[in-house]
Simulated assay, not measured.
Amino acid sequence: MRYRYIEQPACDDAPDAVIEALWETSIISPGTYVVLPDGRMDLVARCDVAVAGEERVVSVAIIGASSRPNRLPVEKDQWFIGARYSPGFGACLGVAPSRVADAALRGDDVLVALGDDLSPLMQARGLPQIRAAFRALALRRAAMAAALPEPARIAIERLHHSAGTVAISELASLTGTPARTLRRHVRQAIGLPPKTFAGILRFHKAMRIMSAESAPMLADVAAACGYSDQAHLTRECQRFGGFTPGQRTPVTLVTMPLGSLAD
Rank of each mutant, 00 (worst) to 15 (best):
V18G: 10
T252P: 02
R4N: 06
M122H: 09
A262D: 09
G90M: 07
I19L: 10
V57E: 07
S173V: 11
V186D: 02
P30I: 04
P193R: 07
S162T: 12
F197A: 01
M217T: 06
A146Y: 06
H185M: 05
I27S: 01
C92T: 00
L233A: 05
A224I: 07
P69Q: 00
A21H: 01
V60I: 15
V18Y: 14
T234E: 15
T181V: 08
R99P: 00
R46M: 07
D117E: 12
R235N: 07
G199A: 00
Q123G: 07
V221G: 03
A145R: 07
F89V: 09
P178W: 08
Q78I: 06
E7Q: 12
R158H: 11
Q188A: 13
V34Y: 01
I19C: 03
P97N: 03
R135Y: 07
A50G: 03
D38R: 11
R187E: 11
E157Y: 02
P87N: 10
M144R: 10
E54F: 14
D77A: 06
Q123M: 15
G53E: 01
I28P: 00
L93W: 11
T244S: 13
R2H: 14
A91K: 01
L201S: 00
G94L: 02
I154C: 05
Q230W: 09
D48S: 03
S86R: 08
Y5C: 03
Q230G: 09
G191P: 05
Q8M: 11
R158M: 15
R208N: 05
A133G: 01
P193G: 02
S169L: 09
Y85E: 08
K205D: 14
A167I: 08
A14M: 11
K76M: 04
C11Y: 09
Q8D: 02
L72E: 14
I62G: 04
L114S: 11
P9N: 07
S86H: 12
L137C: 12
R2S: 13
V112Y: 04
A61M: 15
R56E: 04
A223R: 06
A145T: 14
A172W: 02
T234K: 03
G176Y: 13
S98A: 05
Y227L: 02
T252D: 05
R183D: 04
D48M: 04
I6M: 10
A206D: 10
A145H: 07
P257Y: 05
Q78A: 05
G88E: 09
L72S: 14
R56Q: 04
K76I: 01
A113I: 13
A189R: 00
K195W: 06
V166Y: 01
V112P: 00
M1K: 09
D108Q: 10
D229F: 03
A146G: 02
T175V: 04
I28G: 08
T32V: 10
S66K: 02
A145P: 05
V18T: 15
S173Q: 14
R125N: 05
A132F: 03
L111N: 08
A167T: 12
I154Q: 07
S162M: 03
A45W: 11
D229R: 00
S86W: 12
A163Q: 06
G64N: 01
Q230C: 09
F243D: 10
P73A: 13
R2M: 15
P87T: 08
A133V: 06
A163D: 10
I168W: 07
E213T: 13
E20K: 06
G64Y: 05
H161C: 09
R68H: 12
A133E: 09
L159Y: 15
H160W: 09
G31I: 13
A163S: 14
D38Y: 13
R183H: 12
Q230T: 14
A136V: 08
